[in-house]
Design a protein around this nucleic acid. Structure first.
Ligand code: MN
Ligand code: MN
Ligand code: ZN
Ligand code: ZN
Lengths: 134, 134
DNA sequence: ACGCTTATTGATAATGATTGTCAAAACCAT
DNA sequence: ATGGTTTTGACAATCATTATCAATAAGCGT
């Protein structure tokens, strides 16, 4: 049976209090900074579990780091992520789901899954960076 | 100025001769097996360059490994990848392109790019794995 | 063909994220 | 409260990737 520990709860809360995706390392640092003595391996395990149960979403950053996020939407969904500040918008993509299934089936593929993420600059960062460039 | 070496050409040819996405490590092993004394660091550099110039496509595998492929299509496209054998089908995704642009704009995001990959089991691997499971 | 300049190579070390180990600590059903 | 079982965490191990840097070899002008 699965047991409840303050460590798991701490990870869950830290993730809830984070706006956007965050890495295991960064979340561990954040927890340490708040005085928590939680171990790094435990943070990795907790995040992995949360991702498995669907309580958190995970994705690979462009440079190959695993990032996690506590999502408000429970079902399957995708993300629009600001590559500057990390701000994230959850998006529905019914047409993409249908497209992925269809294209996989058309080529005889089974057990299809898909990675669909949109990266861009949020409105705020767009103006910020435009100002800097001047 | 950029120089031409047999190492770069060897990597290009090895990639051309590969069906599907492959990692730098695997490509290096493959080259070694064919008797090439090329260094691992050089393979990494060559693949990085090919990806930069657009001669090769790269993506992050679900477990965070960078994979490369010499693509037949030159323009923007996406991939349907067998997670067992690496076999890859290039796919058009016009509706997904449009969707990504629209959803980004709707939320005020600019400079939108997207990561769209479909992973599954190709027809061959589907029957292979079904047999093994028995 | 011959040097010369300098980009490139490759053996190796370094880095950094992630996972494995395993004894000690914590849960929780009884 | 007790005991069996799960979880933790310090640490080592792994694995991909990048940094070093002396040795090599393009390619240009001669
Ligand atoms: Mn989400
Ligand atoms: Mn392609
Ligand atoms: Zn932003
Ligand atoms: Zn396959």
């Amino acid at each position: 049976m699965k047991r409840n520990t303050w460590q798991r709860e701490a990870v869950r809360e830290a993730l809830d209090g984070t706006d956007g995706f965050i890495s295991a390392q960064a979340l561990h640092s954040s927890l340490h900074a708040s005085g928590s003595p939680i171990g790094l391996a435990t943070v990795y395990r907790a995040l992995g579990d949360l991702a498995t149960t669907g309580e958190a979403d995970s994705l690979q950053s462009p440079d190959g780091e695993a990032l996690y996020r506590a999502c408000s939407t429970t079902g399957h969904h995708h993300h629009l992520i600001c590559r500057n500040c990390g701000r994230t918008v959850e998006i529905e993509a019914d047409e993409v789901e249908a497209w992925a299934q269809r294209v996989a089936a058309e080529h005889g593929f089974t057990r299809a899954a898909h990675v669909v993420d949109v990266f861009g600059l949020c409105a705020d960062c767009t103006v910020l960076l435009a100002a800097e460039a001047r």
